[in-house]
Design a protein around this nucleic acid. Structure first.
Lengths: 188, 188
DNA sequence: TCCTCTTATGCAACTCGTTGCATAGACAAG
DNA sequence: CTTGTCTATGCAACGAGTTGCATAAGAGGA
């Protein structure tokens, strides 16, 4: 159950409302963890009940009021405890791999379109990550680009590099898959 | 819900019991999809009720009887329908990435042990995949090593290559993470 | 004024996945 | 002959994740 902890980390990086968290989970946090607003609101409510986070009603102009959450001492302690306990490397689940092996009992060539669509999506993700890397880390206008070493920034960057490596690897593999499918299509 | 379809593919590749499926999910299918025996038995029961698979009681000597499942026409049709409908690239969930960003609010150096453990596990997975590749695909004694092109074999191989690429990428990234954590540890 | 869009929060129902436990046949070791 | 291990199947309870729907305030346009 790491959604709790993902939310705590995000709130430590910057306090915010459930709605704002949901948007972050569509962006940077979403690089390595996804969650819908339903999940987020539910978990926020529970963590508030457990005293892990504090709420503050924030009136806004031009839009509905919001509840801004921030991490309480108990939440920080819970996160720290989790950070120090070992977790198992997660297991993989790839629909596409199931489809590829299943294609042996159907028409392999029919999968080409689907794989090309996947390739498109992963290409866009890579471009998005690379743009974010330039904007936030390596670009000339990046914040603190030449300042003192900031642990939080360094750690966010290494996670982003992981996302970039993942997308690059995936694109190369999808090319391999496409070549294989095309070879099987012409060989029949 | 691709567990149904993963089981159908596995049963098409070879009929078997729930127990045997569970063992396959610890091995080759488990490269890209995991499932416990509980899930498998539950899904098998449902698919049997829906007429997707057939059962056959198989008495065995030296061990308890088993129920051998095989894919029925309706199951093949359901799989085919799923193969032809588009699916979205799945979203990622990495506990470790949450921990890395969370380490900014704790002690980054304390994570080194944990990352090294991850590295160990992924190194073992890679070795396991590579051994399987030699045994089943590229080695001299591999079945049909020089026979006619077999679509099922080719497709299984390209999926395995994906697993190998994933593990190699992950190991390289974990080295990057370790270097970053050590840099932050000495710089403080 | 009504309609739609964005922000903002939430309930209810359902499915999927995990964990702990229970049963039972066959065999091997002590 | 009891104990442990491997094969083989299953129930029950819980927790996590998804989907559909509902509400409401404010902004902007038809």
């Amino acid at each position: 159950m790491a959604l709790d902890h993902a939310i705590l980390v995000s709130l430590l990086e910057r306090p915010g409302s459930g709605y704002e968290l949901a948007r972050r989970f569509e962006r940077s946090i979403g690089y390595f963890w996804t969650a819908t607003h339903q999940q987020i609101y539910r978990v926020l409510k529970r963590m508030e009940g457990d005293g892990w986070i504090d709420v503050r009603e924030v009136p806004q102009q031009g839009r509905p009021d919001k509840k801004e959450y921030s991490v309480a001492a108990a939440g920080r302690a819970a996160l720290s405890a989790w950070l120090h306990e070992p977790i198992e490397p997660e297991s993989v689940r790839h629909d596409l791999a199931v489809k590829i092996r299943g294609a042996a009992f159907d028409d392999p060539a029919a999968l080409i379109r689907e794989v090309e669509r996947y390739r498109q999506v992963h290409g866009e993700r890579l471009a998005h990550y690379l743009a974010g890397e330039v904007r936030d880390f390596t670009g000339p206008g990046a914040p603190h680009a030449s300042g003192p070493p900031d642990a939080g920034r360094e750690l966010q960057h290494v996670v982003l590099r992981g996302g970039i490596a993942y997308e690059r690897m995936t694109l190369a593999w999808l090319d391999d898959v496409l070549a294989t499918l095309r070879r099987l299509g012409t060989a029949r």
